[in-house]
Design a protein around this nucleic acid. Structure first.
Lengths: 153, 153
DNA sequence: TATTGTTATACTCTATAACTATA
DNA sequence: TATAGTTATAGAGTATAACAATA
């Protein structure tokens, strides 16, 4: 707990916070452009892509309300968004036999392919950034990142 | 260029791409929640916050068209967004003496304070993540990040 | 009576088109 | 005639309210 007359003390936490903030911001710009354009070209909304992502990664059946809760959106908004996905054959919507008020939303093979394509576009932006790194820097970053990413929830 | 019978070859580039992608995604979730809620509570749109950020970081005078171009939005959309910012006293909008068709948008002291508050909320999310790291991991990540962030555009 | 989802309606944000003022 | 910005209007996406079906 070092005291200092000025408030210029920069701790490792401060420095890392700033570094991570800058990096995330930069990567978002890199990867966002192409991704948003691709989604737009598909005629899908961001909400629909997020829903597809949730469904692609879900392990248990997912109801409409589940999706809305995860995405922080209202039930009507999800109903409409899923409606569009159903019409395009990207997901299916069926009554839950255990509770017929509820609907089970399941991604189709076509929906999964579409989601993976979007994922690849995003990854390509990150990859372009990584490819531009000095190999030594790249390896050092990987070393620093490996144990942290391993523990992400 | 090692050949392999399977396609399981994972290069450092692959691994780092994935690690960075995962980290960015995780940090976005952490920092996005509070930030979006704060913006919403202020009654401002995301566009208005982005405009404020651009203006807060701008070094030269900025026209309405400049903002729209940077943000990828139409002139009418920017006009409306800036209108709201002017009404709240967060920016000023004045004729450019050199070309009276053009307007110079300038952030006010109050606008700058507001932008910094939002920035702090976002940074707080990153900081919470950093605080949760094992100190050794934290320092290793900082070492890996330092030369890279230094060279960001 | 409570809950899941859908439909009706209003609001916000955006874009295109039409317009004004200046170059 | 071309350009910077504003105003008018339409479309997409969201939320609240009202509704239907099931628990």
């Amino acid at each position: 707990m070092q005291a200092s007359t000025a408030s210029k003390q920069v701790t490792p936490t401060d420095e890392l916070t700033r570094a991570l903030g800058d990096l995330v911001r930069y990567l978002l710009v890199c990867t966002g452009r192409d991704t948003f354009r691709a989604i737009d070209d598909l005629g899908l909304s961001l909400t629909q892509i997020k829903a597809a992502q949730l469904l692609a990664e879900a392990e248990a059946p997912v109801s409409l309300g589940d999706i809305g809760e995860h995405l922080g959106l209202s039930l009507p908004a999800m109903s409409r968004a899923v409606d569009g996905l159903v019409k395009r054959g990207l997901v299916t919507r069926e009554e839950d036999p255990a509770d017929r008020r509820s609907k089970r939303i399941v991604i189709t093979r076509r929906g999964r392919r579409l989601y993976e394509r979007i994922y690849e576009i995003r990854a390509a932006g990150v990859r372009a950034f990584v490819d531009g790194l000095d190999p030594d820097h790249r390896d050092a970053l990987l070393d620093g990142l490996r144990p942290i990413v391993r523990d992400l929830p």
